[in-house]
Structures are given as C-alpha cells and as structure tokens.
Amino acid sequence: MGSDKLLFIEDLHKYYGKHHVLKGVNLAVNEGESVVIIGPSGSGKSTLLRCINLLVKPDKGRIVFDNEEITTGKIDVRRVREKIGFVFQHFNLFLHLTAIENVMLGLIKVKNYPREKARRIAEEALLSVGITEELWNKYPAQLSGGQQQRVAIARAIAMEPKLLLFDEPTSALDPELIGEVLKVMEKLANEGRTMIVVTHEIGFALKAADRVVFFDDGKIIEEGSPEQVILNPKTERARRFLFSIRELYRLE
C-alpha cells in the first residue's frame, strides 16, 4: 500500500438485519484528492460514509485509514473520529450552543485546548467559511440553513481533520442557499483537502472533484474522472441515473 493512500477500503459489507446494505465496496482515496460519490437514494452511500468514521460498524471487510487498520476491535475509535470531519445532511449543530461554541466544543473537550486558543481557532474557521463576527453568538435556530451548514463545516475543519466526509450537505437546503455551501466546499477542495462528498450536485462534481464514483445497490458500479462518469458513463445503470439528473438541470 502506497503511503499517498490516505484511505483504503476493501470488500466492505454491512447488513441491517437481513438487509444487505453494502455489498463489497472497494475504494482508495489519495491524500489531497476529492472524491464525489453519486447514486440513487437508499443505495448505501450514507452508510459507507458512516462506516469510514465508525459511526456504523461494518460487518465484514477492511478499512485502512492513515496507515492504520481501523476495522479491528483494538482501535481507539475517538482518535480515528478526531481525524475525520463529518458534515451531515441536516447540519446537526448543537442547538443549545451558539455558532462559535459549536466550533469550540471539540477543540476544548477533545483536543483539550484552553478556551482562548479554542476561540481563536474557531473564529478563524468560521471566517474561512464566510461566517462573520455578527453571527458568532447566534444560536443555530437563528441562522439560515446555509449559514448553519457552513458553521457545521467550520466545526469539522477546526479539528484539523485529515479527511472530510460530506453526506448530502445541500439536500436539506432551500435552493437559493445551496450555492453558498457549495462555494465553501469548492474552496476546501481547491486547498487540497482530502474529501469524500456524497451529493447529487453534478455541477460541483464537474468543477471540484478529482474523481467521481457511481454507487448503486451497495456497490461501486463505475468510477473515473468527473467528465467521463458524468458526461459519458459506461454502464447502463449510471447512464440512466445521470441522464435523469442532467435532464433536471437543463430544465432548471
């Protein structure tokens, strides 16, 4: 295994009861690469992301992250999660904390930074996603969806993760708020962060992804450059799915 491989997934399986959700996923992600996973809802994309940061325990297969197998029982789960940022579809900000406190919590409780240092890092992270000072002391419910998701991204990047996972980060947003979140994500990809993004935003994939993976029925069906997979898919399944998405965008 080359040392430039940050993440290496081999024959990953997951069952929910009798339901076979992941059916042998193989995926490798290089340091600095941004990978977009597209595919129909319910195909197991979210489960795959949750397996990578061990929110969901895979039933079979191997995940090697940062030169360490994380699918063995001996691993310190918290140390792995600390190195992986996760951005949720529904933001999942801590509702009882202000924007800046949301970002500071992990820095204080996980990284054990003193409050002052945590605050400085949090301010920087918030500014980098375009959340300016007047919003820092607002509660999540007082922010728009786009602002909430950007705070959630700040919360993830403040921990200086080696890998960022995005689970349909714009699916719960009003259409006019999607752009501000995608712009932040594009910036992160351009900064050379390693990220895996589950999304239906093919525009983002074409602009920011190094690689696109088409996922269906618990497995990877096709992968390649964004242009190739999105504009010229090889498999019939991918062609049908992407045709309907492209059709949708043309109508808009």
Binding site: R78, R81, G85, F86, F88, F94, L95, K109, A156, M159
Partner: peptide
C-alpha cells in the same frame, strides 16, 4: 440520535 452522531463525529467520548 442526530445530536449524538454529531457529538461522536467530532471525537467526543
């Protein structure tokens, strides 16, 4: 559920 996922995902015990 969701708050727990978010809390665990930043590395909290």
């Amino acid at each position: 559920a969701r708050q727990m996922e978010a809390a665990l995902s930043i590395g909290l015990s």
